[in-house]
Computed example of a mutant assay.
Amino acid sequence: MITQEEKKVYGVLAELNIPYTRYEHPPVYTIEEMKSLNLPDSMCKNLFVRNQKGDKHYLVILEHTKKADLRKLAEQIGSGKLSFASEKRLQKYLGLKPGSVSPFGLINDSEKEVEVVIDKDLADSGEVSFHPNVNTATVTISYGDFEEYLKWCKNSITYVRI
């Protein structure tokens, strides 16, 4: 069953003429759980973090095989200490629940408050896969179309090496 959250994502993808492949699966909360589902290797890891003051929020997007060192990441983006944002902040800024963090949540960021931080190595990916704002499905699109989607969102973007 396709939820309202998903319909919003598919509506934007249709508006942008972005083709996608949808995979339905049981709810998953971690990359480890995703690996057991035999989904494409293009799955991305998405981290929602904030600075120490709590006045800046970042959506960090990287290959699922990598680990983000938040201290090194903070240095690259010129931020103070970073930590994971709370469930309440995730809901407030991206309209998402834990386990469904995704760049598609930027659709809900009407004030463009969340800064997007992308690992430069993703550009070498032919495709990228994300949850469509629920953790019971995964959507795969081309990396080029992902860049088009991000332009449409109009959030600030920084590219880093993770």
Rank of each mutant, 00 (worst) to 15 (best):
R89S: 14
K72I: 04
N51P: 03
L39E: 11
S79M: 01
I77V: 12
Q76R: 05
L90S: 13
L82W: 03
H57F: 14
I77N: 05
G95V: 12
L73N: 08
S83F: 05
L70S: 11
P27E: 11
P40G: 03
P27Y: 02
L82I: 09
K81E: 13
H57P: 00
L47M: 15
K56E: 12
Y93S: 12
K45W: 03
L37Q: 13
S79W: 01
L47T: 01
L59Y: 07
G54F: 05
I31L: 13
S83P: 00
E33N: 02
I61G: 01
K67I: 12
S83G: 14
H57T: 01
K88G: 10
R50L: 09
L59I: 05
K45Y: 02
F48Q: 07
M43Q: 09
R89Y: 04
K67T: 15
R89K: 06
A85F: 06
N38G: 15
V28S: 02
I31S: 08
S79H: 02
E87Y: 00
V49E: 04
L39G: 03
N46T: 00
S79N: 00
K67P: 00
H57N: 09
L90E: 13
K35F: 11
H64R: 13
L47K: 01
K67H: 15
K81D: 13
R71S: 15
A85D: 10
P40W: 05
L90P: 12
K56M: 05
Y58I: 07
L59E: 10
H64N: 14
A85Y: 10
C44N: 00
Q52S: 12
R89M: 13
Q91R: 14
S42H: 07
P27M: 07
H64T: 12
C44G: 00
P27Q: 05
K88I: 12
I31G: 02
A85I: 10
Q52W: 09
I31Y: 00
I31D: 01
D55V: 02
K45H: 05
E75G: 02
A68Q: 09
I61V: 15
G95D: 04
H64S: 15
I77K: 07
L94H: 04
S79D: 03
R89V: 03
V28K: 14
S86I: 08
